[in-house]
């Protein structure tokens, strides 16, 4: 009880300084959490876009009919992912795909009979988020003569999103630094208020760990106030913020923000830990 009263001394002597620090901390924590969440959500989306492609693997024209199914199975085994769409397209499939848009051409090829077989590009379509070496692996499959790839089709958008990611990382680092500097400065000021009591308790034979408790609790109290306020701001400000973000790009709409509410308690915990740590750090030398 005595220690808690000692810890709350800064709140009694300078209540507004403590309160303003807690409010500043709340906003910094909330913005930091937003950027962190944004980073965690955008990074996999960008990675997905950068690897999302469609490969068209053309089959040796002289290979027997139905070969495309066997080759498709081989590619499926080679790439090994359930999420990748792999489909063999034979003569019939090609003409069916061609007919809706080009019925005349489809009929003409069909009328050529066996001679037309050589004109039809039988192929295997591989679509989805592919591994980096997918193209090489498909090309190595027996019966494949050439490959067309849609790689880099999102190149322009990707560059923009990667720039956004870099900016958000810098901003996050800046916010974290500002938060720690502010808290550390507050801890130093609070340590001055504890100096007399700590000096006396040291003379009474107090252990250094004991001497660190009041400043640490002081920092923790500001951190907890800031963290809890940050949780409230996050809970009420977050949905609107991400609604606005979703309007910017279809990419943002695809992000999973449903679990973002869990960030609220994390903000509170981060505030408590940061407050306690900086309160402690501010007096480490003095209490030793």
């Amino acid at each position: 009880m005595s220690l808690i009263r000692l810890a709350l001394r800064p709140w009694r002597l300078t209540p507004w300084s403590q309160a303003f620090s807690a409010v500043a901390m709340a906003f910094l924590l909330t913005l930091g959490a937003f950027l962190l969440r944004f980073e965690f959500q955008l990074r996999p989306t960008v990675q997905k876009l950068s690897r999302d492609q469609v490969l068209t693997a053309f089959i040796e024209p002289s290979s027997p009919a139905g070969e495309e199914s066997r080759i498709a199975d081989q590619i499926r085994v080679s790439l090994g992912s359930k999420d990748i769409e792999i489909r063999g397209v034979g003569e019939k499939g090609f003409l069916e795909a061609l007919r809706p848009n080009y019925p005349g051409l489809a009929n003409e090829i069909e009328s050529l009979g066996d001679e037309g077989r050589d004109l039809i590009p039988r192929h295997v379509l591989v679509a989805g988020v592919l591994p980096a070496d997918a193209e090489a692996r498909v090309k190595a499959t027996t019966g494949i003569v050439s490959i067309d790839s849609t790689r880099n089709r999102y190149q322009q958008s990707l560059a923009a999103f990667q720039a956004v990611l870099r900016i958000s990382r810098w901003m996050f680092a800046g916010l974290a630094l500002a938060l720690l500097c502010g808290l550390f400065q507050l801890g130093r000021l609070n340590a001055q208020m504890h100096a007399e009591s700590l000096q006396l308790m040291r003379l009474w034979g107090a252990h250094p760990v004991f001497l660190r408790i009041p400043p640490m609790l002081s920092g923790l109290s500001v951190g907890a106030a800031g963290g809890l306020l940050g949780w409230v701001i996050w809970s009420f400000g977050f949905p609107g913020l991400f609604d606005q973000l979703a309007k910017l790009s279809i990419v943002f709409q695809g992000m999973d923000f449903a679990r973002a509410q869990a960030m609220g308690p994390m903000i509170a915990v981060a505030g408590i830990l940061a407050g306690a740590a900086t309160g402690l750090a501010a007096v480490l030398r003095k209490a030793g």
Binding site: S2, R5, L8, R9, E196, S197, M201, W204
Partner: peptide
């Protein structure tokens, strides 16, 4: 210690 009561000052010592 001004924040503590008389009893707490003595008890802390």
């Amino acid at each position: 210690i001004p924040d503590l009561s008389v009893q707490e000052n003595v008890a802390l010592s």
